[in-house]
Design a protein around this nucleic acid. Sequence first.
DNA 1: AAAAGTATGTTGGATTTCCAACAAAAGAGG
DNA 2: CCTCTTTTGTTGGAAATCCAACATACTTTT
Lengths: 219, 219
Amino acid sequence: MQNYLDVLRSVELFKNIADGEINTLLSCLSARRGHYGKNQVVFQSGEETGSFGVVLSGQVQIYHEDFYGNRNIIATAGSGDLFAESFVCAEMTALPVSVEAAAESELLFIEFARLAFPCERACFFHGRLIQNMLNIIARKNIALTRKLEFVSKRTTREKLLSYLSEEAEKAGSSRFAIPFNRQELADYLFVDRSAMSAELSKLQKEGLLRYEKNRFELL
Amino acid sequence: MQNYLDVLRSVELFKNIADGEINTLLSCLSARRGHYGKNQVVFQSGEETGSFGVVLSGQVQIYHEDFYGNRNIIATAGSGDLFAESFVCAEMTALPVSVEAAAESELLFIEFARLAFPCERACFFHGRLIQNMLNIIARKNIALTRKLEFVSKRTTREKLLSYLSEEAEKAGSSRFAIPFNRQELADYLFVDRSAMSAELSKLQKEGLLRYEKNRFELL
DNA sequence: AAAAGTATGTTGGATTTCCAACAAAAGAGG
DNA sequence: CCTCTTTTGTTGGAAATCCAACATACTTTT
């Protein structure tokens, strides 16, 4: 695992755990490592698993296939990210999604039970780990709720304004930068890029907004 | 607290904790109780709090006010529900939302730190509680992701089909009942009720679907 | 500096939603 | 059984989105 120490250090789940402890921890958790080729299936929908994953290198795609066989990409996880952790923490019996390597990937699997229940050696980090996990999932929760607030709006204009207004709030200023380019923002808000671009122009013409690249100002 | 024992029993956070233990637990957590009149503010946006709430009776509304002062209702919590738990578990410094009593309510407040860190008496239930909390938040997470998958679709038709297709999958059958009436479903999918009703008729006419009341069949 | 590639803005027509108003059906209560 | 209320379905016009295509500006590469 030595060669992935820099990645492991950046994994939020291992926050506040000293480098020296990570190896102990991984063996206590009996973490397994696996190598996956591009497009190789990691988890199959319907499968039962007590383990979640950590991406050491490469990238995986989490997707859902509906009744008609359409594949819906729910998320992608890159180096340092967790995947399938919510399902495992919710103690779901069967996975409602599939996971596939989007590129050649090195993955780490950790059993939830090992993480959640103190071991006989009473390793100190179990408490830390479960708290980190709670933190991660709670943050994801907040991000999802936030996004849902934007996309609940009916028009592109309203979506934009609610998004931008919250970015302003977050920045504590009416002038702020956003972490998206136009296409990414459109994807995030589930709208058409060109229509969104047009709406942005309109908002600027109407004097509600000023922008240049990814820097905005609400007026 | 005696008079609320039946509610406390139904609180998911206290799952797998014996009735007899609940009083010990509440005092170990130094839970505070509070009475709120209708429209009284429980938490103010921007406020710092280390406590989350449990609704013992009545109802609270969690909402967000944007740049322009529009109030956005994010959720309502009724008897037995938690509120503000994600923010506290994410260790956010300031609340990004406000909470207000929607009716005369009896609320319970629990400090996250008390819940997460074992006390000097090493009460056994701390581990249980934090695991329950992880479970609750993970489930909410899954529900939010699920909803986001539906509302990410551009047309009412696609939203309906993806929602119904997942309900079918959940039920393990192409015949299933949904927990919403038309208005509720429209609100859930963020679409217009009448347009959705029309789209449902159309789907039925086209032979993709059969329905009656809240019972559906995918074809 | 030229060329290729990427990001953003603009426009018009087809499609879809939204909105408001109304009709029909179902349910609740007296 | 009748009345009142709620739920669901229907319709037409206004508004908004989507889509495709293209123009322009900006970046990166060679």
